[in-house]
């Protein structure tokens, strides 16, 4: 991407974000109840989106050639373990990332 294309992309992402934040104030005026379908999506969508984002992060991992996705699998298991153990969001993220960096820099080189 050129710098112009990058700036355009950032502008579109900023616009999309603002749309999600401003839309309720533009559409739902006082006294008019929020459509039930929208309320429903608000409850179920967040749970689904983060699974999607995990897959998005891992989309370029190759399972059929070395290292067969092992660094990712090990680090994700570590994140899950640390998270259930300590329940500290930042600790789980930092621990998993450091472990992953060690794995790809020193173990699976």
């Amino acid at each position: 991407m050129t710098l112009t294309q990058q700036l355009l992309t950032i502008a579109v992402v900023a616009l999309g974000t603002m749309l999600t934040r401003f839309l309720p104030f533009l559409v739902f005026t006082k006294g008019k109840p929020t459509p039930r379908y929208i309320q429903y999506l608000g409850k179920v969508l967040p749970g689904a989106v983060f699974g999607l984002l995990i897959v998005y992060c891992l989309k370029n991992v190759t399972l059929l050639a070395a290292p067969y996705g092992l660094p990712e699998a090990i680090a994700i298991l570590a994140v899950i373990a640390v998270h259930f153990w300590k329940k500290q969001i930042l600790l789980s993220i930092a621990g998993g990332t450091v472990l992953y960096m060690i794995l790809v820099q020193f173990v699976f080189v």
Partner: peptide, 12 residues
């Protein structure tokens, strides 16, 4: 962006 941030609709 819309998918990732859809939850913000409900904060609004």
């Amino acid at each position: 962006t819309l998918m990732v941030n859809a939850r913000h609709l409900f904060y609004g």
